[in-house]
Design a protein around this nucleic acid. Sequence first.
DNA 1: GGGCGTCAAGCGTAT
DNA 2: ATACGCTTGACGCCC
Length: 297
Amino acid sequence: MKIGYPCVNESMDCSTSTTFRLASYSEARLIENVEKNLACLRRILEYNLEHGFLFFRMSSGLVPFASHDVCTYNWQQHFQMTFKRLGDFIKKHDMRISMHPDQFVVLNSPDERIVRNSIAELVYQGSVMDLMGLDSTAKLQIHAGGVYGDKPAALKRFIHTYHTLLPGEVKARLVVENDDRLYSLRDCLELHGETGIPILFDNFHHECLNNGEPMAEALQLAAGTWHPESDGVLMMDYSSQAHGERKGKHTTTMETDLFREFLTHLNGLDVDIMLEIKDKEASCQRARQVLEELSLV
DNA sequence: GGGCGTCAAGCGTAT
DNA sequence: ATACGCTTGACGCCC
């Protein structure tokens, strides 16, 4: 079992997603920012190794405007060796890696342009992992998308896009996450049935939106969609409700009692856990202590 | 060098 | 019709 946090290390004075305005795009700006971002990523990975955090979500912003038409520069070649060295470090220390394209990536949009842009973004993010030499256990996690007033039709569009438009190198990495408002675990299982796509399980989203599956059963269902050989063990996002806030708002810091309670539902299942908690590596440290006490790491 | 409006991109919901 | 949340930072203009 590996534990990690997404994108940002709060105790570090660098960012892996420095960027600039589209209006001020230039090759020099691009190169300058990618250099900074990859240098910071290296520092974070080293920090993570020291602290025993072997799961990490890389920022979508490593290469600003990578999937935008404006970016014609061959950054892949320029940074080839840097990516390879990062990948070597990751593999040497047996780290697990994910990326999470943000809300603009919608594969089931009725708008072809949005689908095209979404695929370009997935190709970009997958290519970062490819350049690092990571195998297909490194994943790109997306949500199923919008509903557009007709969920069956929206699911059908996702499936059609998956089969007809997605490049193989993206399909090898793509996983779908149950969300908290529109597409539940059951909806994702339907997508899995039609495409074979693994389901990245989010416990908090499942609490917000479900079809009555108890947590332990939900975990088993999601885990069953991952091929251990090619996909690795189940990845999951872990969070809990922020008290006194809107339903679905992530907590600012981990409540270890809730985490302990959650772990009882695993029943021996091996998972890699991404903490979607505001204070990032601080909660990660606490989670790791809990896992150590239970001899799970 | 601090303050603050704004930033490539999409959805659904609230008002 | 418009604003806002997701998730949040950080750019870059203004003073």
